[in-house]
Computed example of a mutant assay.
Amino acid sequence: MEAFNLADDPHRRYNPLTGEWVLVSPHRAKRPWQGQEEEVCEDNRLEYDPACYLCPTNVRANGAQNPDYKSTFVFQNDFGALKADTPEGSYALGGLLRAESERGISKVICFSPRHDLTLADMDVADIRKVVDVWQAEYEELGKLDYINYVQIFENKGAIMGCSNPHPHGQIWAQSSIPNEPAKETVHQESYFSQHNSSLLSDYLTLEAKENKRIVFENDHFAVIVPFWAVWPFETIIISKRHYQHIGQMTSDEKHGFAATIKKVTAIYDKIFNTSFPYSAGIHQQPTDGKEYPGWHFHMHFFPPLLRSASVKKFMVGYEMLGSPQRDITPETSADRLKSLLQ
Rank of each mutant, 00 (worst) to 15 (best):
R12E: 04
P16H: 04
G19E: 10
E20K: 13
L23D: 07
V24P: 00
R28W: 12
D43C: 13
R45E: 04
E47S: 14
D49A: 10
L54W: 04
C55Q: 09
P56Q: 01
P56G: 00
T57E: 00
V59L: 11
Q65M: 15
N66R: 11
S71K: 03
Q76A: 10
F79S: 08
A84R: 15
D85R: 02
Y91D: 11
Y91G: 11
G95D: 08
G95K: 07
L96Q: 13
E100Q: 15
I105D: 06
R114A: 10
D126T: 13
I127Y: 08
K129P: 01
V131L: 11
V133N: 03
E137Q: 15
N148P: 05
V150P: 12
E154P: 10
I159S: 14
G161N: 10
S163D: 05
H168V: 05
I171K: 03
E180T: 14
P181M: 07
K183W: 13
K183P: 07
E184P: 03
E189I: 12
S190Y: 02
Y191A: 04
H195A: 09
L200W: 00
D202T: 02
Y203T: 15
L206F: 12
F216I: 02
E217F: 09
E217P: 01
D219E: 15
D219Q: 12
H220T: 10
H220Q: 11
F221G: 05
F221W: 14
A222V: 05
W231Q: 10
I236C: 14
I237Y: 03
R241P: 01
H242V: 06
T250S: 15
S251H: 10
T260Y: 07
T265Y: 01
I267D: 06
G281I: 04
D288P: 03
G289A: 02
H296M: 03
H296G: 03
F297W: 15
M299Q: 07
L306Y: 11
R307D: 07
V311I: 15
K313H: 06
G317M: 04
G317H: 06
Y318V: 05
M320Q: 14
L321H: 09
G322L: 04
T329V: 07
T329M: 09
L337Q: 03
K338D: 14
K338G: 11
L340I: 11
Q342Y: 10
